[in-house]
Design a protein around this nucleic acid. Sequence first.
DNA 1: TTAATAGTGTCTCTGAGACACTATGTG
DNA 2: CACATAGTGTCTCAGAGACACTATTAA
Lengths: 251, 251
Amino acid sequence: MSAGRQKVDPSEQAFLAGYDASEFPHPSLAVDVVLLTVSEDGLRVALVRRDEHPCLGCWALPGGFVGMKESLDAAAARVLAAKARLKGVFLEQLYTFGAPARDPRTRVVSVAYYALVHPGRLTVADVAELQLGRVQVPWSGETGGPVAVLGADGEALRLAFDHAEVIGMAIKRIRGKLDYAPIGFQLLPPTFTLRDLQAIHEVILGRPLNKDSFRRRMLASGELQPTGEREQTVGHRPAELYHYVGRSARR
Amino acid sequence: MSAGRQKVDPSEQAFLAGYDASEFPHPSLAVDVVLLTVSEDGLRVALVRRDEHPCLGCWALPGGFVGMKESLDAAAARVLAAKARLKGVFLEQLYTFGAPARDPRTRVVSVAYYALVHPGRLTVADVAELQLGRVQVPWSGETGGPVAVLGADGEALRLAFDHAEVIGMAIKRIRGKLDYAPIGFQLLPPTFTLRDLQAIHEVILGRPLNKDSFRRRMLASGELQPTGEREQTVGHRPAELYHYVGRSARR
DNA sequence: TTAATAGTGTCTCTGAGACACTATGTG
DNA sequence: CACATAGTGTCTCAGAGACACTATTAA
C-alpha cells in the first residue's frame, strides 16, 4: 500500500497485518541505467569502473540514488546526463532488483532502466572511466539470464553486483519488444537504409533474418518514409535512405 | 548504481556526479499487489478499504512496506498472505511507481506486483474490508491507461493514490503476455474445458475470439493434456476436461 | 565489363478465420 | 424427438520463407 509512515497509530498497525515494526528503517533506493548501442561488431553496453569497495575495479552500470523530490524517470535521466552526457534519448523502466544481499554493505533496491542510442551520439572519450563493453548473450530467444561483457582486449569484464543479470533482463526485454515497438530506430541515425535496420534487428535478436520478409514487413508497417536520397560511395548500387515517421503516418 | 551509503568519502562524492547530498533521506519503499481473478461477469480485482487519511474511505490495492531483510518478491507474497490468505499463487513484478506526489503525505515509491488466481481459491468473506471490484477497461488492445472499478452495487469505486493506473498497467501486461505465457491457466481450476479457457482469454482481452482457431492453437501448443473425463450435468453434450502440463511436454 | 548489392515478382507453406457438418449429451 | 454445445473437415486468405530475376552503382 502507499500510505506514508509519519504517524503509526494503532489502527494503521492493525491494518498493516504482518508488517513488523522492527523493519521500519527502509532500504536505499537507486536507479541503474543499461545504456545500449549497436556498433559494427555487435551490441554494446556502457559501463563505469568502480574505484572503491565493494567490487573495486569491477565494472558497473551507471547509476545513482533517487532524490526525495525526484521521479524515478527523472533520476534515470539525470544519471544518463551525468555519466554519459546524453539527453533526450529513449529511456524506459526495465525491472526493479531488490534481493537483500545484492549489495554486500547495506540494503539497496535498484530500479533498472534501459536506454537506446545511436553510437554517433556517444562520445566515450570525453567521459573518463566509461567504456562500451561488448555484450555476449549465452542464451537464445527470450530465455533470459545473465550475460557476459567483453572489454576492448577481448577478456571478460568483472561486473559489479547483479549487473550481469540486469543487462540480461534488458536484452530479453528489447528482444521481446523489437517487433511491435519502435526500438530499432533508436539505435540508428535519423536516416538509414533497410539493410542498416535489418542489421540492428539481427544483432539484437542474435540470429539472421530473412531479407525479403524483413523488407516487406517494414515497408508494410507504414512507419518508414523514403527520403528520396541514397547512400553515398558504397562500392555498389546505393540503397534508398528512409526515416522513421511513427505509427500515426500509417494509412 | 548499487553502492551503499555507509561511508561517503570524497571519491564517492566525485563519482556520484549530479547527486545532491541534501537528498540523502531516501523514499519509503512499498509493494502493492494487483490481485486479479475472473468471475462469470468479468475481470475482478481485490481492493481493501482505507480507514484513515489520506484517501479515507477510498479503496486501495493490498500493500505493505518492504522489510529491510526481505526481497521484493517475498514482500509481495507476504502481503498476499496477510490480506487475502493466499499462498503459492502466480505472482510477478509489474512496474515501479515513483511519482514524487503519488502519496500526498510523504515520498513512497511502490513496486507493484500482479497476482492471478482462480476465484475458487478466494474466500472474500473471511477477510474483512476486502472486496472484489469489477474492472472496467476504457481502452482496447494494449493502449494502457487508468481503469475504473465498480463495486457490488454498480457504482464506480473511489480508488486511492495512483491505483487506477497500477491496475491499468496490470491489464496491459497480461493482455500482452496472454498468448505466449501460461497466464490463462492461473485463473482456472486445475481441470477445465477449452470453452472455459477461451472465456478467460476473452475476458482478459476484452474481445471475442474465434472458436476454431483458439482450439487449434491451444491443442497445437502441447501445453494441454486431456484427462479423459468430461464435465458433468451441463444440459448438453459435455466437453472434455483438460489440464495444463506446461512447456516441457511439448514435442 | 564485372562485382556487388538493391529491389521486384512469384511460388509455396503455414496459421487464422469462416463455415458446414457430424457427435453426443439433457429434457 | 428437439435443442444446445462439442468437436471435425475443409476452403480461403494473409503473411513468411525461398528463390529467381532485373536494376543500378563503383571500379
